[in-house]
Design a protein around this nucleic acid. Structure first.
Lengths: 120, 120
DNA sequence: AGTCGATGCAACTCAACGGTTGCACACCCG
DNA sequence: CGGGTGTGCAACCGTTGAGTTGCATCGACT
């Protein structure tokens, strides 16, 4: 699937080291070993992070000679951003509607038992 | 602080249960106990998640009588979304520039020094 | 008043995750 | 050709985090 679930995408972005990697790869494509040289973690750790990032499409890898260079995919981040924005807006809308209902007791307040428990 | 670090925000969103909670709270404000009734986890677990979400500003809580109702803050999600989009675009731009340089070795490859550069 | 339900705090379990080390193998350069 | 470098796989470890249970408390509604 080209569109991983939101929690998975966010989880991939929920690690500082991964952001560090993404930042570097966003500036310039490079190999895992190269990343390990500039970051304070081992090459293997970098490798695991790259696998996670590649799994959600935030990183793409390309075999160049004997090396494998990785690069950050900004488009995927953009997709995530739009999704989050959409959801956020929907929340705002709902809350707005709720507040309006609360302030205008005449608009469809039927079926609301006074002093009784509606649910369970 | 009103703007938690990106990794922290994403980490908060990197959990399926938390998304479940946010979804419900986005539809309708409710208490931890109420959430525990509709979700397959204990009230205490819900409480911990709410604390995490509140810590990054994705949830706000209001004491209503003896209950504490929580609600999802869409605006905060929007802020995150804009941030991610910005970063994603910057990645795309860099890559584009790199590709151009690779294909046009004559286009001002000498001195760089453009002012006002501020990467993360 | 009495009870039921909501909350808060604390201790504990268990799995996932980040990170490391070690090793084997492939490839490029000198 | 040989060493050095880049990579992949696997075992291992410490910590974090999600989730649970238990207990004590406080407030609301009957």
């Amino acid at each position: 699937m080209t569109a991983p679930a939101l929690p998975v995408m966010c989880a991939a972005l929920g690690d500082a080291t991964r952001w560090e990697i993404l930042t570097r790869l966003g500036e310039e494509p490079m190999s895992a070993s190269a990343l390990a040289r500039v970051l304070p973690v081992s090459r293997q750790a970098i490798g695991k992070h790259l696998e996670v990032l590649r799994a959600v499409g935030l990183v793409e890898s390309e075999q160049r000679g004997r090396e494998v260079v990785h690069l950050a995919v900004g488009a995927r981040l953009g997709v995530l951003a739009r999704e989050l924005d959409r959801i956020g807006r929907s929340w705002e809308t709902r809350l707005l509607r709720i507040k309006e209902l609360a302030e205008r007791p005449d608009s469809g307040a039927a079926g609301e038992g006074t002093g009784g428990r509606s649910h369970d």
